[in-house]
């Protein structure tokens, strides 16, 4: 039983990192309707930007905040320069995915050109180990979990309780109608990319802290888990992405504790497939959420 509780604790810590990225990815996809594969390379970029600031002896959590801002702005620029022109030209949904895949590869290898293919390290940033009822966390894990929860709640409140949140949802549903209603959709899209990009930046730094050592493949390695978490939770649903991240994280750690760790990811994805067979639109299905949002 102790092993199970510990594994759940480790899973929560791992899941929080995945969820941090998944929340941003899910909201970005849900509102802008772009399956942005460049998100992974942006996380890698964030890790290296964070590494650069860390060399200046800046506190790692301040580094996370600065990097979030940098990647947020970079995401807006990326959307403006590449994706919006493609959309205006009527590029299909799949065509835009391919464009983001291409951009991801270009960005990944641009990073290699500047920093090399070798591993880099944030060093030991985990801090003290805390034990609560057999759940073991490090200080950095606690901060990442709290950050993820705070951002998830913030996103949810933003979407459901604010004017700009309603504008984001309206833009997501039908950009033309939203514009006809007086919503400045370009600004709303920029704002969405800024926020989701900032989440991406935070996730990249959190990943680099967690894995201790990283290279140019960091983001692309973990993107699949974040997409899985976002899909599992229901695209566009911050809570869903959070829950999805936790499911993936806990499943992999419990599998590692009881079966061969070599298959911990396999088991996590088998669970994902089973859950999608049961609830094809994700745990927090769009229909249910739409109804709930309509009442707010």
């Amino acid at each position: 039983m102790k092993l199970l509780i510990e594994a759940i604790g480790f899973g929560i810590a791992t899941g929080a990192v995945i969820a941090l990225g998944a929340v941003g990815f899910s909201v970005q996809f849900g509102i802008s309707n772009v399956l942005n594969i460049t998100y992974g390379s942006m996380m890698t970029l964030a890790a290296f930007v964070g590494y650069a600031f860390l060399q200046l002896n800046v506190n790692v959590w301040i580094v996370m905040a600065i990097t979030s801002a940098v990647i947020g702005v970079a995401s807006v620029v990326f959307n403006r320069i590449l994706l919006e022109p493609l959309k205006r030209r009527g590029t299909s949904f799949v065509g835009i995915i391919i464009a983001t895949v291409s951009a991801a590869i270009v960005l990944q290898y641009a990073i290699v050109v500047f920093v090399g293919a070798t591993a880099h390290s944030f060093g030991e940033q985990s801090g003290r180990t805390l034990t609560v009822l057999d759940l073991v966390f490090t200080t950095s894990q606690v901060i990442i979990i709290c950050t993820t929860v705070a951002l998830m709640v913030g996103f949810h409140l933003l979407l459901t309780r604010t004017k700009i949140g309603r504008a984001m949802r309206a833009t997501s549903t039908n950009r033309t109608v939203a514009r006809a209603c007086g919503i400045r959709t370009e600004r709303i899209i920029d704002f969405t990319w800024l926020l989701s990009g900032a989440m991406c930046g935070a996730a990249g730094v959190a990943l680099a802290i967690t894995t201790v050592s990283f290279d140019f493949t960091l983001g692309s390695t973990f993107l699949i888990y974040m997409i899985a978490a976002a899909v599992l939770g229901g695209i566009g649903q911050p809570y869903g992405a959070m829950v999805g991240g936790l499911v993936v994280g806990i499943a992999s750690q419990v599998a590692g504790a009881y079966w061969s760790p070599a298959y911990q990811d396999v088991i996590a994805f088998v669970i994902l497939i089973i859950m999608l067979l049961v609830r094809p639109r994700g745990l927090f299905s769009a229909g249910a959420v739409t109804r709930r949002l309509a009442n707010t």
């Binding site: 510990e6 594994a7 480790f10 810590a13 073991v136 894995t211 992999s252 760790p261 911990q264 990811d265």
Partner: peptide
């Protein structure tokens, strides 16, 4: 005797074992 996947975000459960 454990086999671990490469580049995982965490190995905590395995480490405990």
């Amino acid at each position: 005797n454990v086999t671990i996947p490469g580049d995982a975000a965490s190995y905590s459960s395995v480490v405990e074992r």
